[in-house]
Simulated assay, not measured.
Amino acid sequence: MNSNVPTVLVPISGGNKIKAGIIGGAGYTGGELLRILLNHPDVEIEFVHSNSNAGNYIYEVHTDLFGDTELKFTSELSNHIDVLFLCVGHGDARKFLAANPFPEKVKVIDLSQDFRLKDKLNITYPDTDNASRTFVYGLPELNRDAIKTAANIANPGCFATCLQLGLLPLAANNKLNAEVHITATTGSTGAGQSLSATSHFTWRNDNLSVYKAFDHQHLNEIGQSVKQLQGNFDKPINFIPYRGDFTRGIIASMYLDSDLTAEEAVRLYTDYYSGHPFTHVTTRNIDLKQIVNTNKCFIQVQKKGNKLFIISIMDNLLKGASGQAVQNMNLLFGLEETSGLRLKATAF
């Protein structure tokens, strides 16, 4: 890519739209991002990059988009964009940016884990007078004000989002003072589109398995965010992830000792998420079909003896990935936070 090509930034006023580029548009997160942005009232997709699918119509890969767009995948890059979404594998986002130094005015939203941790927030471009990018961790329920003024966003992980939303109200009130126990199950799309032994239908169907018990990589994000709110937190977070035999969604159950009453706990959670349009607190039973295909997270709060019991549910591809990326884009460009994200759940 020619890094000297001038960038045209379009102000979001007077009917102009945000010009977006997508890197890695053929995978699950890229497909979800396309479905949202094609229907977003304030966005125009400038290009969708894919080396392996260059020249093919988008609907030849994402077949449900037949009739919605005539866009084709391309191997070419353009600087004439306002925002760049990186829907690439972990480790590949940093490599891509190092090889393709987009102008600083182009905001980057990275859906990989490359910039989520504090010691990985920066990237310095080689051979460009040491120009660099700095990323803000893009969990709106934690960093909304910082996101609004950020240059670049590190989109959180799916498990990390679901679990953090279940714990942050406690940390914000210095009430996360005991060991935390978490069990969570994710759908098969959480493994990405590339086939592996544990993503084949014949293995996954009618099956359930544990993986990365106690050492899942998203624990680093969770610990970082918890300590951002409660700096003295030093208790273990015990996390057992499961592979589910369904396509999409995450359900996480977590419990810890707590001196809060049931009423105090519900009020604490409700107050924390007041004003956050996608996270909702209830004492009623919740299930995945309420949130699948939406950008919502539902949190159920109960007290059982001396245990505070929290259930958190969300769609791993939307609130856990592409939906949250668009939510971050809306905040970056001063749009209504929910713009393009009023999506309908499957329900049944």
Rank of each mutant, 00 (worst) to 15 (best):
178 A>C: 09
251 I>E: 05
160 A>F: 04
206 D>E: 12
242 Y>C: 00
165 L>N: 05
235 K>S: 07
214 F>Q: 08
257 D>G: 01
204 R>E: 11
136 V>K: 08
164 Q>A: 11
215 D>T: 11
193 Q>R: 15
250 I>K: 02
171 A>H: 10
126 P>Y: 03
198 T>Y: 13
156 P>C: 09
185 T>S: 14
206 D>Q: 14
129 D>R: 02
223 G>I: 00
214 F>L: 10
154 A>N: 01
231 G>Q: 14
202 T>Y: 13
182 I>N: 02
183 T>C: 10
208 L>R: 11
226 V>M: 07
185 T>Y: 13
135 F>M: 07
192 G>S: 06
136 V>R: 02
221 E>T: 01
212 K>A: 14
238 N>I: 14
223 G>W: 02
189 T>F: 15
185 T>C: 14
240 I>N: 12
128 T>G: 04
193 Q>I: 12
247 T>E: 10
219 L>E: 13
139 L>H: 02
212 K>W: 07
221 E>Y: 00
184 A>S: 15
170 L>H: 11
166 G>L: 01
175 K>H: 12
260 L>Q: 10
157 G>M: 02
147 I>V: 14
210 V>D: 09
224 Q>M: 12
130 N>A: 13
153 I>V: 11
135 F>L: 05
255 Y>R: 06
142 L>W: 00
181 H>L: 02
183 T>L: 05
234 D>T: 10
244 G>E: 02
156 P>R: 02
155 N>C: 15
215 D>R: 01
184 A>L: 03
231 G>M: 06
207 N>D: 08
206 D>G: 13
148 K>L: 08
255 Y>S: 13
185 T>W: 06
211 Y>H: 06
148 K>V: 07
139 L>C: 12
200 H>A: 01
208 L>H: 13
159 F>N: 02
252 A>F: 06
259 D>W: 07
259 D>N: 15
160 A>G: 15
247 T>G: 06
168 L>W: 09
154 A>G: 11
234 D>Y: 01
176 L>A: 07
197 A>S: 14
238 N>Y: 15
214 F>N: 09
256 L>H: 10
203 W>V: 13
130 N>H: 08
164 Q>W: 04
162 C>H: 01
145 D>S: 15
240 I>R: 03
186 T>D: 10
137 Y>R: 07
141 E>Q: 12
